[in-house]
C-alpha cells in the first residue's frame, strides 16, 4: 500500500506506465460516468491548465468583485444594509480563498496567483472594471451579477474536478443570500419615490451590457468548447448560459416596472430563444486587455491592500515557529 498525503502535494497515484492515450481513455470514461477527478489522479495536461486558468480567474473575480462593493459600505443607507453589504464583501473574499486553494491542488502556488493579479497579467471578470456610481448600482450588482454568477456556478458545481465542485457547493449556498439581498435593495427602490425608481432604471441602463457580456463571447468565437464540455470543465456553452439567464431574470426585471435598454430583446416564439443585441465585443476585448474605466484603480487598490497587509504576513511567518498545543 502506498501512503500519501493528498493535500500537501498531490502525487499522481495511477501513473502506472500505460501510454498517455490509454490513460486518456480511462480518464474520459470516468468523467463520462460522472465520476470526480481528484488531485492525485492522472489528468490530461490541457485539463489541468484549463482548470488552473478558469479557477484562478474565478478566484480573482471574487476578490476584485468585492472592491467596487466595498466602496459603498460607508455610504449604505441604513444600518441593516451596511451589515449585509459588509457580510457580502466578507463572503466574496472568503470565496477567493477557497478557490485559490483549489488552484493549489492543481500545482500552482498561491504566491504566484497573488503576484499575477498584482502585476496585471492575471484575468478576472470584465464586469468589475466598471464603476458603481450610485446606491442603486449596488443593488443591481448584487442582484443581477450575482444571479449571473450563480447560474454559472451551479452548473460548474456539477463539473468533473472534485475540489472545485466541493468548494462551489459552499459558495453557491452563500451566493443565495447575496442575490436575495440585492433583489431586496432593488424592490425597495422600485417601490420608492420617483427619484429612487429613476436611479434604479439608470443603474440598469449602465449595467445591462456588461451583464450580457458577463457570460463571455458567443459560442462561434470559442475554439475549445467541445473538448472542455466532454471533460466537464464547461457544462454549457456561453450562449446557452446567457439564454438561461434571460429566461430566469428578464421577467423578474420587467416585473419591477423596469425597462431593459435593448430594443431587440424579446423571446422568439418559434425557436424559444431570446433575441438580443450583441454587446460590443471589441469594447469587451479592449476592457479585458486593461483599458476599461476602472482596471488600473482595481489593481492599485489590490496592491495597496497587499502592501498594507505585509506586517500580518510577517507576524504569521513568525508564529509558524510557535508550537500549537494538541488536546489530549
Amino acid at each position: 500500500m502506498t501512503l500519501m498525503n493528498p493535500l500537501v502535494r498531490p502525487v499522481i497515484t495511477d501513473d502506472d506506465g500505460r501510454s498517455e492515450d490509454e490513460k486518456l481513455v480511462t480518464f474520459e470514461a470516468r468523467v463520462a460516468a460522472g465520476e470526480k477527478i481528484e488531485p492525485t489522479d492522472w489528468m490530461p495536461d490541457r485539463y489541468r491548465q484549463q482548470l488552473i486558468r478558469m479557477v484562478q480567474n474565478h478566484g480573482n473575480s471574487e476578490i476584485v468583485g468585492a472592491l467596487p462593493e466595498r466602496e459603498w459600505i460607508p455610504h449604505a443607507p441604513t444600518f441593516k444594509r451596511k451589515l449585509a453589504l459588509t457580510a457580502k464583501v466578507q463572503d466574496e473574499v472568503g470565496h477567493a480563498q477557497l478557490l485559490y486553494r483549489v488552484v493549489e491542488t492543481l500545482g500552482k502556488p498561491r504566491e504566484v496567483i497573488i503576484e499575477e493579479l498584482l502585476n496585471g497579467t492575471a484575468k478576472y471578470s470584465n464586469v468589475f472594471n466598471y464603476p458603481p456610481e450610485t446606491w442603486a448600482d449596488v443593488g443591481i450588482i448584487a442582484w443581477l451579477i450575482d444571479a449571473a454568477a450563480i447560474i454559472r456556478q451551479m452548473l460548474l458545481r456539477e463539473g468533473s474536478y472534485g475540489p472545485y465542485s466541493r468548494a462551489l457547493k459552499r459558495i453557491c449556498y452563500e451566493e443565495s443570500f447575496h442575490l436575495k439581498h440585492g433583489h431586496d435593495i432593488c424592490v425597495t427602490l422600485a417601490t420608492g419615490t420617483q427619484f429612487q425608481r429613476d436611479m434604479l432604471q439608470d443603474a440598469l441602463n449602465r449595467w445591462w451590457n456588461p451583464i450580457v457580456g458577463f457570460f463571455g463571447p458567443p459560442d462561434r468565437a470559442s475554439v475549445h468548447t467541445d473538448e472542455l464540455m466532454r471533460w466537464r470543465v464547461k457544462l454549457k456553452t456561453n450562449d446557452a448560459i446567457r439564454q438561461q439567464f434571460f429566461d430566469q431574470y428578464v421577467p423578474r426585471i420587467w416585473e419591477l416596472g423596469l425597462s431593459i435598454p435593448d430594443p431587440e430583446l424579446r423571446k422568439d416564439d418559434e425557436s424559444g430563444r431570446w433575441l438580443y443585441t450583441e454587446p460590443d465585443w471589441e469594447e469587451f476585448k479592449r476592457v479585458i486587455k486593461g483599458h476599461g474605466p476602472c482596471n488600473a484603480e482595481r489593481i492599485a487598490v489590490r496592491r495597496l491592500a497587499h502592501e498594507e497587509g505585509e506586517w500580518v504576513r510577517r507576524a504569521l511567518a513568525a508564529a509558524a515557529n510557535d508550537q500549537a498545543v494538541p488536546v489530549q
Binding site: K80, L83, A84, A87, L179
Partner: peptide
Amino acid sequence: YREAWGYKV
C-alpha cells in the same frame, strides 16, 4: 441579514 431566508423578496 446575512441569510437568504432573511429576505422576503
